[in-house]
């Protein structure tokens, strides 16, 4: 008899994460790759590498959950049983690891959120709105500009004794501030450290505005791997900030836990990495609204379509 296992996939704007857990929420296999603007191939690649880490003689996958901005597309590809937003997934995952958590800070590639928890129940949340300042994508861009590997970003920031002050409101202004300071001859580590501080200030002013941040504070998402930002958060909040080893996998972990409630007794095969998926976008001409309808094909066969506002689009 094989044991049950549950697969969670989180397809974000920058990275794609996959986690397989067992009945007691232990991680059996996990993988983290870059999305590179192509969720379909990212999911395929993810499944392929998860397969190699997974012992199919011991376990069988009985449920699949997808989350992240491409959750619908990936959900269709994998035949997911649970498709949920990343906010709920993050909250569920964090509560299962830290039952006493009060504040969850999450900064990802394109978005950032704050989730407030009280007695294992989400009481409030907020997400960045029209602006992507203070997210991972911004940091990656600036690292490139400064010719630094993003993985060294944090350790370089920690070397600084005198961080530069940078505008925090908007990424475009922060960037021009940065260029200006660099031309004036400021040290690289001071600028990098200033960037970490501006991310934190931006987060506290734009996302967490008006919300009370109580400890324990858990910090997750890709940016939580940057020790410079973690340090800046701790300085600003004057409290300890918890970062888990699997902080970047939390969304996938959470959706895997949630998918447990929708178990279907089918043995998931990893064959999808060989199937040919294709999406076609066309403007529906059913009426003047011209909805953009997205159709997804598996091996040239239409699986599903969405984006239509009325029945005309289904033709």
């Amino acid at each position: 008899m094989k044991n049950n296992a549950y697969l969670g996939v989180d397809i974000g704007s920058i990275s794609t994460k996959g986690v397989i857990i067992d009945d007691s929420n232990n991680i059996i296999a996990c993988e983290y790759i870059k999305t590179q603007g192509n969720p379909i191939s990212a999911v395929k690649q993810l499944i392929k590498s998860l397969e190699s880490k997974f012992d199919s003689n011991l376990y069988k996958i009985v449920s699949i959950g997808t989350t992240g901005s491409a959750r619908k597309l990936a959900g269709k590809m994998l035949g997911a049983t649970t498709i949920k937003n990343e906010i709920t997934a993050h909250a569920i995952a964090t509560i299962s690891i830290h039952p006493d958590v009060r504040t969850i800070i999450e900064i990802g590639g394109q978005d950032s959120k704050i989730i407030l928890v009280d007695k294992k129940i989400v009481t409030d949340y907020a997400m960045n709105t029209l602006c992507a300042a203070g997210t991972g994508a911004f940091l990656t861009n600036q690292a490139k500009r400064l010719d630094i590997d993003i993985n060294d970003f944090g350790s370089i920031a920690l070397m600084s004794k005198n961080p530069v002050k940078l505008a925090a409101r908007c990424s475009v202004f922060a960037e021009s501030d940065l260029v200006h300071k660099a031309q004036l001859g400021y040290k690289k580590e001071d600028i990098v450290s200033g960037l970490c501080k501006s991310i934190v200030n931006n987060y506290l002013n734009n996302v967490a505005k008006g919300k009370k941040i109580l400890s324990p504070v858990v910090f997750q998402g890709g940016v939580s791997k940057n020790i410079g930002v973690v340090k800046a958060f701790e300085d600003e909040l004057k409290t300890n900030v918890i970062v888990d080893d699997i902080g970047h996998l939390m969304g996938a972990y959470g959706i895997a836990i949630m998918s447990k409630k929708s178990v279907k007794d089918n043995d998931f095969s990893f064959r999808i990495s060989d199937a040919n998926f294709e999406t076609k976008v066309y403007d529906c001409s059913g009426c003047a609204n011209n909805c953009e309808v997205i159709r997804i094909y598996k091996d040239m066969k239409l699986m599903d379509s969405w984006g239509n506002k009325c029945e005309n689009g289904l033709k």
């Binding site: 901005s69 949920k84 937003n85 990343e86 906010i87 709920t88 909250a91 129940i121 989400v122 009481t123 409030d124 949340y125 997400m127 709105t129 029209l130």
Partner: peptide
């Protein structure tokens, strides 16, 4: 929620869904 010409529908849906989940949890 703030609406403008370019607000993506998915963003609104994600937030509504999370809001709904949160209310259920509460």
């Amino acid at each position: 929620l703030t609406f403008d010409t370019n607000t993506s529908e998915l963003g609104i849906k994600t937030r509504l869904e999370a809001f709904h989940d949160m209310l259920l949890m509460r």
